[in-house]
C-alpha cells in the first residue's frame, strides 16, 4: 500500500473511532448532566450555609431556630406548609424566601409573635435595595433554608410533646440523675452546639486557650465579683443559664441571643441530661 492509501485507511478508522467515542460519551450524558445539577445544588447549599452563618444567624439562630418574640424560626414546618397560604403568596416557598431576604420587612407581619429588630423589622439584603448581597448569594441562602424542609420540626404541636412536666425556672429544684449520652444528643437536637461549640456567638463549652471547660468555668463564675445570679453550685449555675439566660450574661456576649423559653420546652430529665453532658467539659 502506498503512504496515501495507508493514511486514508487510518484516517477513516480514526474518524469512525471518534464517532464511536462521542456516541458512547453521549449515552452517559443524561446521567452526567443530572449529577452536575445535583452538585451545583449541593454547592449552592454549602455557599448558602456560609452566607447564612455570616449574615442571618444573629437573628434567626445558627440552626434557624429563631428567637422567640423577635425573629421567626426558619427551620419550621409552618414555613414550608401553611405560611404561603396565610400570606397569600402564589409563588414557591423559595421565591418567597428570596423576595423576603432581598427587600426585608419594613414592619413585622406577625408583630404579636415576632416583632423583629426595631425598624425596619428586617433589613433589605439585596444590593438592589441598598443591602450588601448579590442576587446569586441570596439565591444560595434560599437554597440553604429550603434544605431544612425535610427535617423541620412542627413547632405548633411540639409544646405538647414533652415527656413530663417542664423544668420551669426555679433553679433550686432537685434534678434527677443525668445521662451524658442523651445529653449530647439533646445538645445537638436543641441547637446548643450551634453557638456553644465552635462559633463565637455564645461561650464555647470546651476548654480552649487557657480557659477551662464549662464545668470548671461554672464553678469559678459563681465566685466572681460581678456575678449577680442566685446559683450556689455549678449545676445550679448551668440550669440558671439555660432557663433564665438573662439572670447573668457573661461579659462580651449579647443578652438577646440565648432563647429564654427552655424552662418550658425541656423536662427536668432533659435539663439534667444536658447539664451532665456539659459537666464533662473540664
Amino acid at each position: 500500500m502506498s503512504r496515501v492509501q495507508i493514511e486514508i485507511f487510518l484516517g477513516t478508522l480514526l474518524v469512525l473511532a471518534t464517532g464511536a467515542l462521542i456516541i458512547v460519551y453521549g449515552l452517559g450524558e443524561e446521567e452526567r448532566m443530572a449529577r452536575l445539577e445535583r452538585q451545583q445544588q449541593g454547592q449552592a447549599i454549602e455557599v448558602g450555609a456560609e452566607l447564612y452563618d455570616n449574615n442571618c444567624k444573629g437573628c434567626h439562630g445558627p440552626q434557624g431556630e429563631g428567637v422567640p418574640g423577635l425573629c421567626p424560626p426558619l427551620n419550621d414546618k409552618y414555613l414550608f406548609t401553611d405560611r404561603m397560604k396565610d400570606v397569600g403568596w402564589s409563588g414557591s416557598v423559595e421565591d418567597y424566601i428570596v423576595a423576603t431576604v432581598s427587600s426585608g420587612r419594613l414592619t413585622s407581619t406577625r408583630p404579636e409573635l415576632y416583632a423583629g429588630q426595631g425598624s425596619p423589622a428586617m433589613p433589605a439584603w439585596s444590593e438592589d435595595y441598598a443591602g450588601p448581597l448579590r442576587q446569586d448569594q441570596i439565591r444560595n441562602i434560599a437554597a440553604f433554608i429550603m434544605n431544612w424542609e425535610p427535617t423541620a420540626p412542627d413547632r405548633r404541636t411540639e409544646g405538647g410533646q414533652l415527656a413530663g412536666p417542664p423544668v420551669g425556672t426555679d433553679i433550686t429544684i432537685e434534678l434527677p440523675e443525668g445521662d451524658t449520652v442523651n445529653g449530647e444528643a439533646l445538645a445537638n437536637a436543641k441547637g446548643c452546639v450551634g453557638c456553644h461549640v465552635s462559633t463565637p456567638t455564645g461561650p464555647a463549652w470546651s476548654a480552649s486557650e487557657g480557659t477551662p471547660g464549662i464545668a470548671d468555668r461554672s464553678a469559678l463564675r459563681i465566685e466572681q465579683a460581678d456575678y449577680n445570679g442566685t446559683a450556689e453550685t455549678a449545676e445550679q449555675y448551668l440550669l440558671e443559664s439555660i432557663v433564665l439566660p438573662k439572670a447573668y450574661v457573661v461579659e462580651g456576649y449579647l443578652d438577646n441571643l440565648m432563647p429564654a423559653n427552655f424552662g418550658s420546652t425541656l423536662t427536668a430529665q432533659d435539663a439534667a441530661d444536658i447539664i451532665a453532658y456539659m459537666l464533662t467539659f473540664k
Binding site: V4, E7, I8, L10, G11, T12, L14, V15, A17, T18, L21, I22, V24, Y25
Partner: peptide
Amino acid sequence: THEVFLTALGLFILVAAIA
C-alpha cells in the same frame, strides 16, 4: 491526505482526552 489524516488524529486525541 496527510493533513486530513492529521486532522482525524487530532480530533481523536481531543475527544479521547475528554471522554
